[in-house]
Design a protein around this nucleic acid. Structure first.
Lengths: 341, 341
DNA sequence: TATGGTAAGGTTATCGGTAACATTCTTATG
DNA sequence: CATAAGAATGTTACCGATAACCTTACCATA
């Protein structure tokens, strides 16, 4: 590999002069600058990022840790983050924890050893606490995305889960549904808890009693076993007329399950969910959803993070951005006549 | 930040002894090892990856550059790569070029400066040549994915585009279609060229004449303007009975376009495409596709790459893995009676 | 008792950059 | 023409780790 010393030697200057040319610092005569530039071209010089960040104590890179790379919510979020990072001259590195604490722990280790300037994290859930504490302890600025973690104070970008869920359920009630089930993510995830709250609130407002057997907790992730949902569904004494899914991945599992049982949506059962399905569900915009502004999660998250990185102010009050969800009413909910129920 | 020197001082040993404990090298007494370990815990030591890779001249990390993070083909590929990398003790970094040469060039720069041990690249197309040449020149081992680039010799994992395309078209012909259009990716992408060849071959075998106006070249990427397709479709003198899309993103564009015009698939027009749609099209497995083994692309790609990294053999014959595509026949093709046409 | 082999650990130089300070070269000014 | 004030460049030390070599101390053996 070519180093600044090779260039310095060939250009008959000191390494420091080369460094100055590269970074446009200090005073360099045009003649020298041109000479050094020419040698750099000839030798195909590429700066060594590791050496640079070792002495500078900063890397100009940000790590984005998401929980599911197959989920369009997170890939869209990632694009937002990437755009914002590029715009600010930061390199963005991605990691994918798969909603898995062990992988998350691994990535936190990577983050610490590579000395990135900051981190954007969608945490796996409340048990991510020690991971975030580790970041805190090592003074790595970070911004949480999508999920709060009790015990951690930091900047955060959230969706309005409670409100979105409430509006979804209110829509169902408005269409005449009374027996509404919720298949949710784990209650160790803040957004799942809020969606449950929104669900319960809407039921209450609608004068519908909350039933324990209509709540099932699965995993938000791609790798959870769908048979849990099947068992729950089979075991139901009274079939609901509508199911709300806590996120898009769960909605997929539910719809597949219903199809396998020959149940048509919405004719036999209505389905709604949180999060939109991304471009690949465009074949037939069918599912009624509470769509989140995924791109903004990433974009705004990077902005909050870069603010912290630049000011190095970890004491000033924490920012909390709450983005509303859009209710997109499509065709997965059947209108029930009062008599029909 | 805590360094090995801080630990050395507190444990009353030399930095070298600390290094030996960390890496399990050399001879260290159990007493010393325990003492050093204890101090490391107390001080929350985290090794500095930059310093380490500076002296070792290797980073144990691999860069994966994909062209579309929103495309399930690539995210599935990414999971395969991630799994394979983890299994081999390599860190995996992702980049997303968005089918955009400028972004790709940028990422190549990042790759060179960060001195990763190797790269997995899905190139934007033939014009990616200089980027790959840069990797070659700097002796960075790389493996191509999904697309060949004329002028570059290297290990590569490909799908059998020609065969898959031929089978898709043969299926259409078998169902009685004669007027079959192809909306393809840019001809500067090898896989698009092969898909065109497969298309033409199937037409020939079926005794159908190739028509120039039934070929439209759009972009494989997420950011291309769908109005091009609209114009082409509007301008058609004779409407085809079936359209084959060069990949899944194009299929989405076509289906949206048809829907906007009130044309039903497959009743009014049949559609097939290359690549499956991922979990989020499970709502209704509808589109007949040539599905590629996306996960394997990533998994096998990493294996080829790590072989090169370990042997440092850049001279031995290049590996070329060609993965077949599965024809998944679903419901987006209408059977035409000979009379109907 | 001399010898040497090995276990355990220390010293020094180096990876490729940059900050801080030092030095040399210009140029304008009294 | 001497000289001071910058402009242009060089020197040295250091960022945090590891490789290569060196030093002890101890024990077994002839």
């Amino acid at each position: 590999m070519v180093t600044i010393y090779d260039i310095a030697a060939k250009a008959n200057v000191s390494a420091m002069t080369v460094s100055r040319v590269i970074n446009n610092t200090g005073k360099i005569s045009d003649r020298t600058r041109a000479k050094v530039r020419k040698v750099m071209e000839e030798l195909n010089y590429v700066p060594n990022h590791n050496a640079r960040s070792l002495v500078l104590q900063q890397t100009r890179s940000i790590f984005l840790l998401i929980t599911d790379i197959a989920n369009p919510f997170y890939t869209t979020l990632a694009r937002g983050a990437e755009d914002a990072a590029r715009k600010n001259g930061y390199r963005l590195l991605f990691g994918n924890s798969d909603e898995n604490l062990a992988k998350e722990a691994d990535y936190v280790q990577t983050i610490l050893t590579t000395r990135v300037d900051g981190v954007l994290v969608a945490p796996a859930g409340d048990p991510s606490l020690p991971h975030l504490e580790a970041l805190k302890k090592h003074n790595v600025p970070f911004v949480l995305l999508d999920r709060e973690v009790p015990g951690i104070e930091c900047d955060i970008v959230l969706g309005d889960s409670k409100d979105g869920a409430r509006r979804l359920v209110e829509h169902l009630i408005g269409e005449g549904h009374q027996r509404i089930a919720l298949v949710n993510g784990s209650s160790s995830i803040s957004s799942a808890r809020l969606r449950l709250q929104g669900y319960q609130e809407a039921l209450k407002l609608g004068g519908i009693e909350y039933r324990d057997d209509y709540l099932f907790e699965a995993g938000f992730g791609p790798s959870h076993d769908p048979r849990g949902i099947e068992c729950w569904f089979e075991g139901l004494a009274e079939q609901p007329t509508a199911i709300m899914a806590g996120n898009n991945v769960l909605a997929m599992a539910i719809i597949r399950l219903l199809r396998e049982r020959g149940l048509k949506v919405p004719d036999d059962l209505s389905v709604v969910c949180f999060d939109d399905l991304g471009p690949f569900a465009e074949i037939d915009p069918f599912l009624t959803v509470a769509a989140q502004q995924a791109y903004q999660f990433g974009y705004l998250g990077i902005q909050l993070l870069i603010d912290r990185i630049i000011t190095r102010e970890m004491a000033s009050p924490w920012n909390k951005i709450v983005l509303p969800a859009d209710l997109l009413i499509r065709r997965s909910v059947k209108r029930l006549t009062p008599a029909a129920d």
